[in-house]
Simulated assay, not measured.
Amino acid sequence: MINPTTLLEKIQAEFDRHSYGEAPAELYEPITYIMSLGGKRFRPLLTLLAASIFDTDLEKAIKPAMAVEVFHNFTLMHDDIMDRAPLRRGMPTVHEKWNANTAILSGDVMLIRAYDLLLDIQREQLRAVLNRFNQTAAEVCEGQQLDMNFETRWDVTEEEYIGMIRLKTSVLLGFALELGGMIAGADDETVKLLYAAGENMGIGFQLKDDLLDVFGDPEKFGKQVGGDIIANKKTFLLIEALSKAEGQLKTELDQWLSLDTFDSAEKVRAVTEIYDKLEIRAFTEHKINEYFSRGIASLQQLRTDSVQKEVLLQFVEQLVAREK
């Protein structure tokens, strides 16, 4: 049995010795920097766990799995520029530590290096993998554009929001699992089940992030609780509150959203109370469980007796239970 901890150590060791390029240093140092900031690395881990169900030789899956993580961090580097974010994982973002132009160019090279890592795939599988990767990459960009579009709208529906996070976040999770199956030679039906599992779980993870930002334990969550409320970020919770609030609650919510100057702690407390009165937490938890259940159901449908299927399921259940 191959356990997630062993695979994670292997992935990290590969990243530690991997070179993205050397000169000019101003181009490559930011890449090494953002990749050294850590992160959960669960996308490449999911690729290896999926591959392990159907093939014990995981060496051929290592570099393609790394490609998923490099691409993910490329999107983070560019997202940080668009969001003007000062911090990433508690450290200065690349555009803050260097400058925006450097962050754009270094991010571009990261995308190229992701393709370099994918080229390690066997020739007979390469075209199909690149087609799926290209579609996924385009969808991630589509999701980011929708997210930016939503910044100027107050009529975003639940359906639109779910569609946006599916593109921006969950399709890459789906691809990570799908990729493992493709590399290991799984059949088309199995690959589709793996993708569906990741897609649904990805939506569940984003909804859980939205929930934890308001109701999470600050010591476990790892960042400021209530940050989305302070920024008027259109999360699942706010969208549901805007659709459900009536009368005095609607007046209060609209007033808090319209203020340019306010006490942050007071705003977080007031908006959270509105969420409580509208039972937004329970509704969100129901949605989270719904998407996680769909994802786990897809994994359970995999037709294999491999013990690694149970390893993958157990790892997914640990991710579902996370509080940060």
Rank of each mutant, 00 (worst) to 15 (best):
Y275A: 05
L49C: 02
G202N: 13
S293E: 08
D213W: 02
D263Q: 11
V225L: 06
G226E: 01
Y115F: 13
G174E: 12
N289H: 11
G180W: 03
K244L: 09
S243N: 07
K40E: 09
L319D: 00
I62S: 04
L146H: 05
K168E: 09
A67E: 00
E158G: 04
L118K: 06
R132Q: 12
I239A: 08
I104H: 14
D210M: 05
E139G: 00
Q308T: 01
Q125G: 06
A25T: 14
E266Y: 01
R89E: 13
E317R: 11
G181V: 11
D188R: 15
P92S: 10
T284A: 15
D210Y: 09
L87M: 08
D217A: 03
V70Y: 07
S106Q: 14
L177N: 11
N149R: 11
A103M: 05
L117P: 00
D79P: 00
H95M: 13
E285Y: 05
A321I: 00
S36R: 14
K233F: 00
I203W: 00
G174I: 10
K309P: 11
T284F: 06
N149K: 14
R113N: 13
K324Q: 02
D210K: 15
R41W: 02
L194Y: 13
R127F: 13
F42I: 14
S19F: 08
K309F: 06
T169I: 12
A103E: 11
N232K: 02
E29D: 12
V156M: 05
T157V: 12
E158W: 15
P64G: 07
M35W: 07
L146D: 07
Q314D: 13
L207K: 05
S293Q: 11
F54N: 02
I53D: 02
F175R: 15
G90R: 13
T261R: 12
K267H: 03
I274T: 08
L146P: 09
H18R: 10
R17L: 02
Y28P: 00
M148D: 03
E178R: 14
A176E: 10
I183K: 06
A65L: 10
E317N: 07
D57Y: 09
M66D: 08
K277D: 08
S298E: 12
G180I: 12
E189G: 05
S36L: 03
K267E: 06
F205D: 02
E323G: 01
S306F: 11
I203K: 09
K60R: 09
F71V: 05
A270Q: 10
K277I: 01
I239Y: 07
V225N: 01
L313H: 04
L58Y: 12
D209A: 10
Q122D: 13
Y33L: 04
R127S: 14
F74W: 11
E285T: 14
G185M: 11
R269E: 15
G247A: 10
S306Q: 06
L193A: 09
I104K: 09
R17S: 09
S293Y: 07
G174P: 01
L146R: 15
L173E: 03
L117Q: 03
P4M: 11
G39I: 12
L278Q: 01
A138T: 10
D187R: 10
Y291D: 00
